[in-house]
Design a protein around this nucleic acid. Structure first.
Length: 823
RNA sequence: GCCGAAGUGGCGGAAUGGUAGACGCGGCGGUCUCAAAAACCGUUGGGAGUUAAUCCCGUGUCGGUUCGACUCCGACCUUCGGCACCA
């Protein structure tokens, strides 16, 4: 640790942390009772991967949410604030492989260490409710949910081109491909064609766009909206009957049906099944070579927008039903099989990509939406704006905005196509060719086909003795004891599905499990879930916006529709904390050597200092950089609190009582109660701490000046300890005991503030001339407008600034200022 | 390219139309000490002025609204985050 000069502690923080953590464990004060009569409050922090040590980032995420949960508890709620481990998945598995340890061993050891570290934070986690997703008692219910989805058409198996990470040796969901790289290991993602299991999240695309029932950061809602990518358009058919195929036409999707008279070519995605049928014999060699080359490309190469638009002519043509024009059919890799119909109509005049493509292959560019002031000359670039329809038969001379609707009507009437809403989001690919996950409960039988594992045979256990290193095929496929199964339907020999589930399946419902983590008759206890319901307050990083947070919403909606639970959204309120950076303002990483290990700081300063320091860095949603020198300041404050609280208050009684001093101290106290409560309510931990520091400083000054007696002092100190108890639970508990109180400071109700006692008697009246401050004077709060204006105009500091001018107006803001407008 | 957020002292930040810089770090001066550390006290945006009174400048840039703008509006610059051949 790089602390040069460390503030000396006034007290033995190690002994105090240990004493109270032991005490709270023994007296069960963090055990949550389901039958508590107080209103419930379910406050959840995203559970960690057991990837090794508890990072300072975990502290940054967890200690403020613990403070908020404690605050809620003091406000009279029965608070559920649980913790667990997201124990399956690539993170733990890759780390285990690297070290040559079995993932089970690695994960178990890590969890043990992290439980110890989590306890050192002093959070109110009820460990009896701990959820560990790699336990068969947990993942059994992943399998059960899978079967419910499968039986209701929400889980299906399909042969499809999928994202493949060559390093992790597994497929990935779209959400896990970031800029063409693997979300976990940043390896360039490639393609494979595989039979995989999907969850039908697209069925919920429309409902997932509705955020009216949740109070989430606008940013996250926007990210989900972008990800879902809704667009309204038209599926329009082009005639290919001249080739005598089964298909009489090919269908394209467009959002710009107003440009349909400008189609001069049509492009198929290279993977499209019709490519084979529509390629003319003389073009076959060239087309096949192109398709082969397109498939070999990585996600990055394929999706690069800067890349040249390439394609190859199939030799075939199709007919635009609207104008009977025969246009060539191309294959081009800028068309994606997975969006729309995998075929696009090429309108070079009004689409930038089509324009580039048409230029490259010398295809005609037919203007059908005239730009304003268009001179009839060929376009220099695609015109994508709103204009006037031209060369569009009976639709000429109307606005393209109207053209959009009227041409769509025309197409629907003639049966050439239909309006269609398209979504960019694709179904959630949940298969993984990896060992460390939940086995998919499916059996393949030569006689009966795909057979679901009967529910009473769950869980399908993950064999511990399997080879776990990834080979590209699921490691479970090499384990004969696992693979060989009996078909539940015909009793014949069959093979098990050997892929495991994406870890995000686990985290899509773990919050349901906390309501009764040991329940055996189901994924959750319906009575307990009815009591606790959805999570009231969820906190976690924004990096999960289109992964975990989207999947969990889908899961809850699907379970609702299957009659398994009865609410619409998993997390009513969401707060995204920021990212904690290293001292160099860079993201912490082992390679940079800027990783902060919280244990050392907890050892040196105690849990409360680390908690408070992280909360004091700045607004919680903005993150911040760790600073060694800053933490000394927090330790100093704790020392001052210790000093101020442990003084012998009877000394004060030797001095005369000053009623004004008593009132001033009470005023500060009530103002602080108001301020700290409001700040904690809004997650403004930094300003709550500033308020507590000011209060401490004020009390110190009061002690020096005397005038208050021991009973006033005791009241002020207990309010200080109560107000700081959610954020600094150990020291406040210790001082609560030392100041002679019975019971726990954490059992206190959140203090009420008294408006009358918090009210000022005097205020600083600011006097401005033309908006510039020229004087400040103390005025009673009872001063009236006339009095304030008179005082301002009579100020000797104001006089020189209005000399020789006439006073045009005098503005009075009660309790604040007077502004003299002089011309 | 599109969408979004943010730019305030040496540093983290506070103030959401009304005293810019709360609170803290760091710095400077002092007390204590043989000395240092720690602790405590004072001071600390920049400039002019005798260290005073006082004045000027100052919240990314340029404009606007207003008696008054860090705050509202318009344009721009920079940084960060997200999305990106989605037809």
């Amino acid at each position: 640790m790089a602390v040069v000069r460390t503030t000396e502690r006034r007290f033995d923080h190690k002994a105090i942390d240990a004493k109270w953590q032991r005490c709270w464990l023994d007296d069960g004060s963090h055990r949550v009772k389901d039958d508590d009569p107080r209103p419930k409050w379910y406050e959840l922090t995203m559970y960690p991967y057991p990837s090794g040590d508890l990072h300072i980032g975990h502290w940054y995420a967890m200690s403020p949410s613990d403070a908020h949960a404690r605050f809620r508890r003091m406000q009279g709620y029965n608070v559920l604030h649980p913790m667990g481990f997201d124990a399956f998945g690539l993170n733990a598995e890759n780390a285990a492989i690297q070290r040559g340890i079995h993932p089970y061993r690695w994960t178990t050891d890590n969890m043990e260490n992290m439980r110890r570290q989590l306890r050192s934070m002093g959070a109110i986690y009820d460990w009896e409710r701990e959820v560990v997703t790699c336990a068969p008692e947990y993942y059994k219910w992943n399998q059960w949910f899978f079967l419910q989805f499968y039986k209701n058409g929400l889980a299906y198996r399909a042969y499809a081109p999928v994202n493949w990470c060559p390093s992790c040796q597994t497929v990935l969901a779209n959400e896990q491909v970031i800029d063409g790289l693997c979300e976990r290991c940043s390896t360039t993602v490639t393609h494979r064609d595989l039979n995989q299991w999907f969850f039908k999240i697209t069925d919920y695309a429309e409902e997932l766009l509705d955020y009216s029932k949740i109070d989430w950061p606008e940013k996250i809602n926007r990210m989900q909206t972008n990800w879902i990518g809704r667009s309204e358009g038209v599926e329009v058919e082009f005639d290919i009957s001249e080739y005598g195929l089964d298909e009489q036409s090919i269908t394209t999707f467009t959002t710009r049906i107003d440009t349909v008279y400008g189609v001069t070519f049509v492009v198929l995605a290279p993977e499209h099944p019709l490519v084979e049928k529509l390629t003319m014999p003389e073009r076959r060699a060239e087309v096949e070579a192109y398709v082969e080359q397109a498939r070999a490309q990585t996600e990055i190469e394929r999706l690069s927008t800067d890349k040249d638009k390439t394609g190859v002519f199939t030799g075939a043509y199709c007919v635009n039903n609207l104008n009977d024009e025969r246009v060539p059919i191309f294959v081009g890799d800028y068309v994606l099989l997975t969006y729309g119909t995998g075929i696009v109509m090429g309108v070079p005049a009004h689409d930038e990509r089509d324009f580039v493509f048409a230029q490259k292959y010398s295809l005609p560019i037919q203007v059908v939406v005239a730009p304003p002031d268009w001179d009839g000359e060929p376009l220099e670039e695609a015109f994508v704006g709103v204009g006037t329809q031209v060369n569009s038969a009976q639709f000429d001379d109307i606005s393209s905005v109207d053209g959009l609707q009227r041409i769509a009507d025309h197409i629907e009437r003639n049966g050439w196509g239909r309006r269609k809403v398209q979504y960019r989001v694709r179904d959630w690919l949940i298969s993984r060719q990896r060992y460390w996950g939940t086995p998919i409960p499916i059996i393949y039988c030569d006689e009966c086909g795909v057979v679901a594992v009967p529910e009473d045979e769950l869980p399908v256990l993950l064999p511990e003795d399997a080879e776990f290193r990834p080979t590209g095929e699921s490691p479970l496929a090499l384990n004969d004891a696992f693979v060989n199964a009996v078909c539940p339907e015909c009793g014949g020999s069959a093979r098990r599905e050997t892929d495991t589930m994406d870890t995000f399946v686990d985290s899509s419902w773990y919050f349901l499990r906390f309501t009764d983590a040991r329940y055996e008759a189901g994924a959750f206890n319906p009575e307990k879930l009815a009591h606790w319901g959805a999570v009231d307050q969820y906190t976690g990083g924004a990096e999960h916006a289109v992964m975990h947070l989207l999947y969990a919403r889908f899961f809850v909606k699907a379970l609702r529709d299957l009659g398994i639970l009865d609410f619409d959204e998993p997390f009513d309120r969401l707060y995204n904390q920021g990212v904690i950076l290293g001292a160099d303002h860079e993201k912490m990483s082992k390679s940079r050597g800027n990783v902060i290990a919280p244990d050392e700081y907890v050892d040196t300063f105690g849990a409360d200092v680390v908690r408070c320091f992280l909360m004091f860095l700045g607004p919680w949603d903005q993150g911040g950089s760790w600073s060694d020198s800053g933490i000394n300041g927090m330790a100093r404050w704790m020392n001052r609190v210790w000093d101020v609280a442990t003084r012998d208050a009877r000394q004060l009684d030797d001095f005369p009582r000053d009623d004004d001093a008593v009132r001033r101290m009470q005023r500060l106290m009530h103002k602080t109660i108001r301020r700290v409560g409001e700040d904690l309510e809004r997650y403004k931990f930094n300003t709550a701490l500033a308020g507590l520091m000011e209060y401490t400083n004020g009390l110190n000054q009061r002690w020096e000046a005397k005038g208050v007696h021991s009973q006033h002092w005791a009241e002020a100190i207990s309010s200080l300890l109560t107000l700081m108890s959610p954020i600094a639970p150990h020291i406040s508990e210790e001082l609560w005991e030392r100041t002679g109180h019975q019971g726990s400071v954490h059992a206190n109700a959140w203090p009420q503030w008294d408006e009358a006692l918090a009210a000022d008697e005097v205020f600083t009246l600011v006097v401005q001339v033309n908006g510039r401050v020229r004087d400040k004077m103390e005025a009673p709060v009872s001063i009236d407008e006339e009095g304030a204006k008179t005082a301002a105009l009579e100020s000797r500091r104001v006089a020189p600034h209005i000399e020789g001018k006439s006073v045009a107006r005098v503005i009075y803001v009660p309790g604040k200022l007077v502004n003299v407008v002089a011309r």
